[in-house]
Design a protein around this nucleic acid. Structure first.
Length: 400
RNA sequence: GUGGCCAUAGUUUAGUGGUAGAAUACAGGACUGUGGAUCCUGUGGCCCGAGUUCGAUUCUCGGUGGCUACC
């Protein structure tokens, strides 16, 4: 089963509060969905996850298909039982890996080209790579397992089958994610392919699951509008906005402004792979209901820990500190004095810096707990502020 | 005690008769549908003394320190 109800709309923006209900429970939107690629939020166990107040998680079709195999997971009664998580699960389709393991690896670029450009131009754009990790054609994507070199092929049908075997509550259509460096011509070809695949997915998906379509089109207005109109009129349960989000945050905001008004207002919208603090505010105000992002957990592992404005966080320093910095060597305070997470209640910045520099496993858990709690608490605040009409004020407090 | 080998960045090491690269460590930075991966920038060095030479980190001798072999 699947249901989405809008509970309240913000007066000053397209932001809204909603409730998503699945057969494994419900969650309130806008919400942040922690990424549990291989059936676990890295470094955390289910106990940690529950204590953080996580309501829904996202796992990955491509990775689980490779290891341990979706058929094995099916034998265990699906991913919920395999990992012993009883709440809602979203799975990505594997389409993104055509980009993240293909073009992105070859050219060293991310979803938003941004600061990469100088670096890309000089070092990577002309680099000849003999080993392609992913190759796309009209049928699907051929991958090379980066670990053991095995060839793997994903198609719309296969992605739907794998996600059915996993038994997730919300699944995504198989799509092709293009690069910020792709030109309009190629992005257009990829777009047609994504649209064709969307129709195939709708035909063959497991109707016990909720299927979300994905809007593509890169940074090109004409293509984004075309895609939003096409995907938006299909019988999907919700919609993802994916792909290259341009060369700057401004580009990303424009893309949201072009596409969201063209999607059915009564269905949830998921902004794929985005989750920096300022992005959450900007996207919610433009009508996004769901986010998933590796940023909180990956950045935690890299030493970047979130701090609020009260602790010195700003858009300029990305609301974070780098715990590796020498200036925290003797810092006896918590990561963020306003945070009530386990790490902040029990440990100092100096201790966490020590654990990080010593590559201690405990660091990864404490840091991941902090960053996830921080983001989940921020989403709580955002929802509360829409509820009581103070979202605009909250956004100004944080972004200035 | 005697012989042999060696001495270059905090550490492990390339290399050169015209004052030197790397790895790692250190100081920072990047990272948005997960590799604890990766990438970028910066700081930092020729054991001491004498000799040969226009010029020595390099060649010679001595000192000091280390490794090793033999009695």
């Amino acid at each position: 089963m699947f249901d989405f109800k809008i509970i309240k709309k913000d007066k000053n923006s397209r932001g809204r509060i909603g409730k998503v209900t699945t057969s494994h429970g419900s969650f309130i939107t806008p919400c942040f969905i922690p990424v549990a690629t291989s059936g676990t939020i890295r470094a955390l166990d289910n106990n940690d996850i529950s204590e953080l107040g996580t309501t829904v998680i996202l796992s990955n079709t491509y990775h689980l298909h490779l290891r341990p195999g979706d058929l094995l997971i099916k034998k265990f009664g699906g991913l919920h039982k395999f990992m012993n998580w009883d709440g809602p699960i979203v799975t990505d389709s594997g389409g993104f890996q055509a980009f993240s393991l293909g073009f992105a690896v070859e050219h060293g670029v991310g979803k938003i080209a941004n600061n990469y450009l100088d670096f890309v131009d000089k070092k990577h754009i002309n680099r000849v790579t003999e080993e392609k990790f992913a190759h796309v054609d009209d049928k699907g994507v051929k991958f090379r397992d980066p670990v053991n070199g095995d060839k793997v092929e994903l198609t719309p049908l296969k992605s739907m089958q794998i996600q059915s075997n996993l038994g997730s509550d919300i699944i995504f259509a198989f799509d092709e994610c293009t690069s910020p460096l792709s030109d309009k011509k190629y992005t257009s070809i990829a777009l047609e392919r994504t649209h064709k695949w969307a129709l195939e997915c709708l035909k063959v998906y497991d109707k016990k699951q909720a299927l979300f379509g994905i809007v593509q089109g890169g940074e090109y207005k004409e293509l984004r509008i075309k895609s939003a109109k096409f995907i938006g009129k299909l019988k999907f349960d919700g919609f993802g906005i994916g792909g290259s989000l341009g060369k700057s945050k401004d580009d990303m905001h424009k893309i949201l402004d072009w596409t969201i008004p063209l999607l059915p207002s009564g269905k949830p919208r998921h902004l794929l792979g985005i989750g920096a603090v300022e992005d959450l505010f900007e996207a919610v105000s433009r009508g996004i209901d769901m986010f998933d992002c590796v940023a909180p957990t990956r950045w935690a592992r890299r030493g970047h820990l979130y701090i609020s404005p009260a602790a010195g966080g700003t858009a300029e320093n990305k609301f974070r500190i780098n715990i590796e910095n020498k200036k925290f060597e003797e810092d006896a305070g918590p990561i963020d004095k306003t945070c009530d997470c386990y790490a902040c209640k029990n440990h100092t910045r100096a201790y966490l810096r020590h654990l990080f520099r010593s590559s201690e496993l405990t660091y990864f858990r404490l840091a991941s707990i902090h960053n996830l709690k921080f983001i989940l608490r921020l989403m709580d605040k955002i929802r509360d502020s829409i509820e009581d009409g103070s979202f605009k004020k909250l956004k100004k407090e944080w972004l200035g």
